[in-house]
């Protein structure tokens, strides 16, 4: 069902967004979903049903690593941090993404 103000995420871009969200500091799952919403001016909404599988997938790939920690309000939470491989992956994906969007823009403009 198409939504008016919120865009569904393209397959594969979620991973990039998560890595991007973690670029500055380690974060827990809830924080990541909030950060993605903020970064996209409330346009991109991450479903929890996609977020956690994605987090496990990224951990499996070795791009992020998880550690239990304590949140701002003293709650036990699992924090995810970028690994070196994750940082490289983010760079690569960003470059790819830019190429892709440039190409799409080009297509859109010519039509």
């Amino acid at each position: 069902m198409p939504k008016e103000d919120k865009t569904d995420l393209l397959q594969g871009t979620l991973d990039m967004l998560i890595l991007k969200a973690l670029q500055l500091e380690p974060m827990h799952g809830f924080g990541i979903s909030v950060r993605i919403r903020q970064m996209s001016d409330e346009v991109l909404q991450v479903e929890q049903g996609s977020l956690y599988p994605a987090l496990y997938r990224l951990e499996e790939q070795g791009w992020i690593k998880a550690e239990w920690g304590v949140s701002d309000n003293n709650r036990k939470a699992k924090y995810y941090a970028l690994t070196a491989a994750g940082r490289r992956q983010l760079e690569a994906e960003t470059v790819n993404w830019e190429k892709l969007t440039a190409a799409i823009n080009l297509v859109l403009r010519t039509v």
Binding site: H28, G29, F30, G31, Q48, Y52, S71, R75, K76, A77, K78
Partner: peptide
């Protein structure tokens, strides 16, 4: 997994 999801809900 259960603890993590519960934490998310609480937040």
């Amino acid at each position: 997994l259960a603890a993590e999801l519960r934490a998310h809900l609480e937040m």
